[in-house]
Amino acid sequence: MSNSKTSLTAPSVISDFKEITKMRLALSVVFSSLAGYLLGVDTVSYKTLLLLALGGYFMVGASNAFNQIIEKDLDALMNRTKNRPIPSGRMSVTTAFIIACVFTLLGIIILYAINKQTAMFGAISIFLYTCVYTPLKTKTPLAVFVGAIPGAIPFMLGWVAATDDFGIEPGTLFALQFFWQFPHFWAIGWFLYEDYKKGGFFMLPTGKQDKGTAVQIIMYTIWTILVSIIPVFGFTGKLELSIVSAVIVFLLGLWMLYYAFRLFKIMTEKAARQLMLVSVSYISLIQIVYVIDKFIR
Rank of each mutant, 00 (worst) to 15 (best):
K5I: 12
K5S: 15
S7G: 13
L8F: 12
L8I: 06
S12R: 10
S12I: 12
V13N: 15
V13K: 14
I14V: 14
S15L: 10
E19R: 13
E19A: 14
I20C: 08
T21Y: 09
M23Q: 09
L27C: 13
S28Y: 04
V29I: 11
F31M: 13
L34M: 12
L34A: 14
G36A: 04
G36S: 06
Y37S: 02
Y37H: 01
L38V: 06
L39P: 05
V41Q: 07
T43M: 09
S45C: 03
S45L: 02
K47R: 14
L49N: 11
L50F: 12
L50S: 11
A53P: 01
L54H: 03
G55W: 00
G55M: 00
G56T: 09
G56H: 11
G56Y: 12
F58R: 01
M59F: 04
V60M: 11
V60L: 07
A62C: 10
A65Y: 07
F66Q: 00
I70S: 01
E71S: 00
D73K: 12
A76M: 14
L77V: 05
T81Q: 00
R90K: 14
M91V: 13
T94S: 08
F97Q: 11
F97P: 05
A100W: 05
C101T: 15
L105Y: 07
L105D: 02
L106A: 03
I108W: 04
I110A: 06
L111E: 06
Y112N: 12
A113L: 12
T118L: 04
A119Y: 07
M120H: 15
F121R: 13
I124V: 15
F127M: 11
C131D: 09
Y133C: 07
Y133F: 11
P141S: 10
A143W: 02
A143G: 08
A143R: 05
A148W: 03
I149L: 15
G151H: 06
P154G: 10
M156A: 15
M156G: 12
V160R: 08
V160N: 09
A162V: 07
T163F: 03
I168N: 11
L173D: 00
F174D: 09
A175V: 09
L176Q: 03
Q181E: 05
F185I: 04
L192F: 09
L192T: 07
L192M: 11
Y193K: 14
E194L: 08
K197H: 08
F201V: 10
D210R: 10
D210L: 11
V215Q: 07
Q216T: 02
I217P: 02
Y220W: 09
Y220E: 01
I225C: 04
I230P: 00
V232S: 01
V232A: 02
T236A: 13
L239V: 06
L241R: 01
S245V: 03
V247S: 01
L251G: 01
W255V: 07
A260W: 08
A260D: 10
F264Q: 14
K265N: 13
T268M: 03
S279H: 04
V280H: 05
I288N: 12
Y290M: 15
V291I: 05
I292L: 15
K294C: 06
F295L: 08
I296T: 04
